[in-house]
């Protein structure tokens, strides 16, 4: 299998090769990997990659996946434009 052609995070174009490389360097949390290669920082915020990365960490570090934390989630879910935020604040003013 060519790990460079296995896409883990679509949004930020992160491959399995990159993820495995970081885990082997000792970055064994989803949050650290996210900060180093931006996996999960794109528009989908880790919906497709989070679980795959957690599984890779579990496998390579020989840890049970139950012990691996998934990435944090932050508002605003799905994104919102500045214009939309402002429009809501001024409706009844």
């Amino acid at each position: 299998m060519d790990e460079n052609k296995v896409i883990i995070c679509r949004c930020e174009d992160v491959t399995l090769a990159e993820i495995r490389n970081l885990i082997k360097q000792g970055f064994t949390t989803v949050e650290e990997i996210k900060r180093l290669v931006r996996s999960g920082m794109g528009p989908c915020q880790g919906k497709t990659c989070g679980l795959l990365i957690a599984r890779e960490i579990a496998e390579i570090t020989n840890t049970s996946i139950e012990k691996i934390e998934i990435q944090n989630m932050r508002p605003p879910y799905g994104g919102v434009t500045f214009e939309e935020v402002i429009a809501g604040d001024t409706i009844e003013e």
Binding site: M41, Q45, R74, P76, G79, F82, E83
Partner: peptide
Amino acid sequence: LNKLRIIRQ
């Protein structure tokens, strides 16, 4: 910036 999307705070 008006139409730009905020994705995380």
